[in-house]
Design a protein around this nucleic acid. Structure first.
Lengths: 337, 337
DNA sequence: CGCCGGACGTTATACGTAACACTTCGCGGT
DNA sequence: ACCGCGAAGTGTTACGTATAACGTCCGGCG
């Protein structure tokens, strides 16, 4: 911004066009109908173009008191999922003249001390994933309008929420596996403190618990393929009857489970069924292709942005969870009895 | 930003603490040594805290004439690669008191009309991937300091560049495959107009051309697993002697090649060797694990940010391409003669 | 005693923009 | 002849911050 020779201001344009700065503002702001002659307006536009004038956004934001920019806080960029969320949010935002700025809580920089100091952009509002929990306290510090993605609606935050119907997904998945005849499960859980995964675990346990003779083991791993591999390998090799199905909290965890199975000499799906969550590109790259729960990331982003726009305009955001869909592929089958 | 009851300003804090607005600015800006007593400073800090005061970034940016914020323009967020670039850039930026804002050219919104209108943040500079080509003209429109990632250093842009040593990677890869005895190749190329891929193709062809009796077929596909699968399947089923090795411009393309091989009944690596580029998590999720060229995305981001800081301070950015590394795994072997 | 300089502030100003309030002028109606 | 009114602008102000320039008090030194 601080250029060698400072950039032209609206006053420079005014001088060049032989009008006042106010007239420039009128013309460039497209509010000149009936206030400035068409000829003058054209002269102003020409001068602005010749000088390469670009308005100073800091000044405009200050004057206007808003920025038409919102912040999207995501846990990290290591998955396509939040890429989809961003795409959806940005699409809706663009249609309403808003911009979206991303704040991925950066790994290895430690907990985000202050997202707003880092994203120096002045903001009108915030959309935050509940998985970026370390940034939440800082967010609450500001009194910005806030929409939470996948968070406890009854939580203490008192913010608007947009949720995926994770519970329904867990039910569909449990029913699928139970119908195939599975009774012993390994839940390979994401090592993230998040409402999403808590709800999922609870619902899974509840649904599976309705059938007699079932049991669920739980292993926990960070969402990387190698951590998941190690956790799954240890859990599957543990004493006692081996689980016949591994339910993973993420497609990447499932990829880890595949590797563990290979190392233990277990074939999928004959010896072991595996399921994921997300339906990333990875899901169809695996062999056999992964049975997983498809989450519509873009729709998630769109709904998040729409909710924030509603809050900004003082309206009540539309409720209703976003439906999810079980996609059955080759990684699940009846257990060998 | 436009809140119901407007947020407190530094003047409100001043009133509450019984001092002038200037004193508040001094204290909160940590420039009060020898100008304000420790007791008064403490009183100001207390008042600021009680009122929940947060400085107005727009006003500060306007006053200061800079924002300590830079923009990172990436082609899309669909790969972990640019997640790594962001992480590296953000780490360096944070160490220098800068923030990084991401501008992924959003898919489905069409070519970015004006990244700076969208990212309303006022900016000090820009780092752009050459793969986000559609945004480039808009970028040149502004006279912001610019660093290009992986772009032709002699190109007409006249901007600073930071490059991966893609050419060396191509040489390492060609030597590896030639040494194994491969002579007929399929180059599964990324369908993106980018200097990176052009250099790679040229270098690959040059290196392989040094050996007699070699031949390279080229197929082109967008970087999605299914597009790559279709392109690879068609190319491998084409008449004439079948290539024994597939060189992919991206790990995702390689995943598509795996699927094509499965459908054609070809085993990897016995019937077909496959190589990738990037070394994403996907590479080790595949079976067999993928031989690929590892790109250090984080270092790439760090170097990009350092170069931009140099430009901002009027220094010459450090040159030197970033080395890349061939990682040999199970997907390459000598062809069955 | 006179005067200097540090400690402790304050006053005033500028950053670039948008918008309110105001002026000037020509012209049509009565 | 006079009023009213719309067109075509201009003058001025405010947004909230950081900082340069300016005061004032007081202890101490020559």
């Amino acid at each position: 911004m601080a250029r060698g020779s400072t950039r032209p201001t609206s006053r420079d344009v005014a001088r060049a066009a032989g009008v006042s700065q106010a007239a420039v503002s009128l013309v460039l702001g497209d509010k000149w109908r009936g206030r400035v002659s068409a000829a003058t307006a054209e002269r102003v536009r020409q001068a602005a173009h010749d000088l390469g004038y670009r308005p100073n956004l800091a000044a405009r934001n200050l004057r206007l008191g808003h920025t038409r920019t919102v912040l999207l806080v995501v846990p990290a960029l290591t998955t396509e999922f939040f890429a989809g969320v961003y795409t959806g949010a940005a699409r809706v935002a663009a249609a309403h003249g808003f911009g979206v700025v991303l704040y991925p809580s950066p790994e290895g920089i430690g907990p985000a001390r202050d997202p707003f100091a880092s994203a120096q952009a002045a903001l009108d509002g915030v959309i935050a994933s509940s998985m970026a929990a370390d940034a939440l306290t800082a967010i609450r510090g500001d009194q910005l309008p806030l929409v939470m993605l996948d968070s406890d609606p009854d939580g203490s935050l008192g913010a608007a929420t947009v949720n995926l119907d994770i519970a329904d997904g867990a039910r569909q998945l449990a029913d699928h596996l139970l119908a195939l005849g599975h009774r012993r499960f390994l839940h390979l859980a994401a090592d993230i403190a998040s409402w999403t995964f808590e709800v999922r675990a609870r619902e899974l346990a509840a649904r599976i618990g309705t059938v007699a003779g079932t049991g669920v083991r739980t292993a926990r791993a960070p969402i990387t393929i190698d951590d998941a591999r190690a956790a799954a390998e240890a859990a599957l090799a543990a004493p006692g009857p081996r689980p016949t199905a591994v339910i993973c909290d993420d497609d990447k965890l499932a990829a880890g489970a595949y590797k563990a199975a290979r190392r233990l000499g277990l074939r999928i799906p004959d010896d072991l069924s595996v399921t994921g969550l997300d339906d990333l590109a990875l899901a169809t790259a695996l062999d056999p292709e992964l049975t997983t729960i498809r989450l519509d990331a873009e729709l998630f982003g769109e709904r998040g942005m729409l909710a924030l726009l509603a809050v900004l305009e003082g309206r009540e955001p539309d409720g209703g969870d976003i439906p999810v869909e079980l996609v059955v592929r080759g990684s699940t089958a009846a257990p060998r009895s």
